[in-house]
């Protein structure tokens, strides 16, 4: 066993060795695909993650994204903007610090929660089929993304405990924020206008 291992290792290290047996050994692929932090599919063609960057491009290519809902308070890097531009990915900035529509002149901090109106804006994009495939992302893919997904789940008729369980799964060691959960619980799902003809199939009520 150990002898086999060492010979394989030796051959492995020595690339000039053209032993045919060597080719039969399976290797990890050279290209490691790196999804963004906290990536997870939510529904068909709807994904969530932390802030995507250029190192995720081979992964993002697979998703054929049409829209990124950018909830982070910071702007994406130039090379990432370029990537999106080149691939015709529409970035919807929601909840930015320098957002044009100030909410009652209130300045936004990166650690602030989203507001009802920003959540609604995000959901209004999500309920339209034409924007798919969509990636929802924020800095770490925890709280802001979790807020929007949480409200979407309520829109889908999930009970609050299940919504909270999912939210907390993505919040890391420091756990969930009560304020986020209050926001999800208090969000008026009837304020989202859904045109069933234009909604993704999984959202349709049967």
């Amino acid at each position: 066993m150990s002898i086999d291992n060492t010979t394989i290792q030796d051959q492995d290290d020595n690339n000039t060795n053209t032993n045919k047996q060597l080719r039969k050994i399976s290797h990890p692929p050279a290209l490691r695909i790196i999804p963004p932090l906290n990536f997870c599919p939510v529904e068909k063609q709807l994904y969530r993650s932390g802030q995507p960057s250029i190192i995720n491009q081979s992964f993002l290519n697979e998703l054929n994204l049409k829209t990124i809902i950018w909830l982070a308070s910071e702007e994406p890097s130039d090379d990432f903007l370029e990537y999106c531009n080149y691939n015709d990915i529409n970035i919807e900035f929601i909840g930015m610090i320098n957002e044009f529509e100030y909410d009652q002149q209130r300045l936004q901090n990166p650690w602030d929660s989203l507001t009802d109106s920003t959540i609604r804006k995000a959901l209004q994009i999500i309920v339209q089929k034409k924007n798919y495939p969509i990636l929802i992302s924020c800095g770490m893919g925890r709280h802001r993304t979790g807020t929007v997904i949480g409200c979407l789940r309520r829109l889908q008729g999930w009970n609050l405990a299940s919504v909270s369980e999912e939210y907390r799964r993505f919040t890391g060691a420091r756990g969930g924020r009560i304020l986020v959960e209050l926001l999800i619980e208090g969000f008026d799902i009837n304020s989202v206008e859904i045109d069933l003809e234009k909604a993704p199939d999984w959202l349709k009520v049967d």
């Binding site: 008729g157 009970n159 299940s162 799964r169």
Partner: peptide, 8 residues
């Protein structure tokens, strides 16, 4: 309300 299984 809908209840997905845990860890769904």
């Amino acid at each position: 309300p809908l209840t997905p299984p845990e860890n769904f």
